[in-house]
Simulated scan of single mutants.
Amino acid sequence: MILFGENTPMPTPTMTVDPDSVTPGFAGFAFMVVIAIAVILLIWDMNRRIRRVRYREEVREELDAEEASLEDSARATGADDTGADAEGGDAPDEKSR
């Protein structure tokens, strides 16, 4: 029985493939640059669209809040819009006929 006494020789790996035939070369580099530029442009466009949606939502909330405050102030003063008929004008008086 041999306990750690002998070292078995390990073979050293030899290169069997030409390193120039397995590297991506200029075509691989150019492809990666195009992909990187496309990703950067997509991220830029996505950020612009998200910002636009956020601004629209903020404006919509401000308009809703303004409309709600106008309705509250109209209720507080006792004015309402029930005096108008369906065509948008005032209802005719019975005396004017």
Score class of each variant (00 low, 15 high):
57 E>P: 00
38 A>R: 09
50 I>E: 08
52 R>P: 00
5 G>E: 03
42 L>G: 15
83 G>L: 11
56 R>N: 10
64 D>H: 11
94 E>R: 03
21 S>N: 07
20 D>N: 14
38 A>C: 12
7 N>A: 04
7 N>H: 06
75 R>N: 14
13 P>K: 00
90 D>F: 05
17 V>S: 00
84 A>H: 12
65 A>Q: 11
87 E>D: 15
46 M>D: 03
91 A>K: 15
62 E>Y: 09
51 R>A: 13
59 V>E: 14
2 I>Q: 09
95 K>W: 12
14 T>N: 05
86 A>Y: 00
18 D>K: 13
87 E>V: 00
48 R>E: 06
49 R>V: 00
83 G>W: 15
12 T>D: 10
67 E>W: 03
81 D>N: 14
82 T>M: 07
37 I>Y: 10
15 M>P: 05
68 A>K: 12
2 I>A: 13
76 A>F: 06
10 M>N: 04
86 A>S: 07
77 T>V: 11
69 S>Y: 01
60 R>A: 14
66 E>S: 03
64 D>A: 15
87 E>K: 07
97 R>F: 13
16 T>F: 03
51 R>D: 05
84 A>F: 15
84 A>L: 15
92 P>T: 05
4 F>M: 00
30 A>Y: 14
38 A>G: 06
52 R>S: 03
16 T>W: 11
2 I>N: 12
51 R>K: 05
9 P>G: 02
23 T>L: 14
80 D>I: 10
9 P>T: 04
36 A>Y: 09
40 I>Q: 00
38 A>H: 05
68 A>R: 13
51 R>W: 01
73 S>M: 06
48 R>T: 09
6 E>G: 03
10 M>S: 04
95 K>M: 04
12 T>V: 07
33 V>R: 15
6 E>L: 14
50 I>S: 01
67 E>L: 11
30 A>K: 15
29 F>Y: 15
70 L>P: 01
13 P>L: 01
59 V>N: 02
43 I>Y: 03
18 D>T: 11
74 A>M: 12
81 D>W: 12
48 R>Y: 05
78 G>P: 06
23 T>C: 04
75 R>L: 11
59 V>G: 01
8 T>I: 13
71 E>T: 11
44 W>H: 02
64 D>Y: 08
85 D>L: 08
1 M>T: 10
87 E>Q: 11
37 I>L: 10
24 P>G: 01
69 S>Q: 11
44 W>D: 03
43 I>R: 07
91 A>G: 02
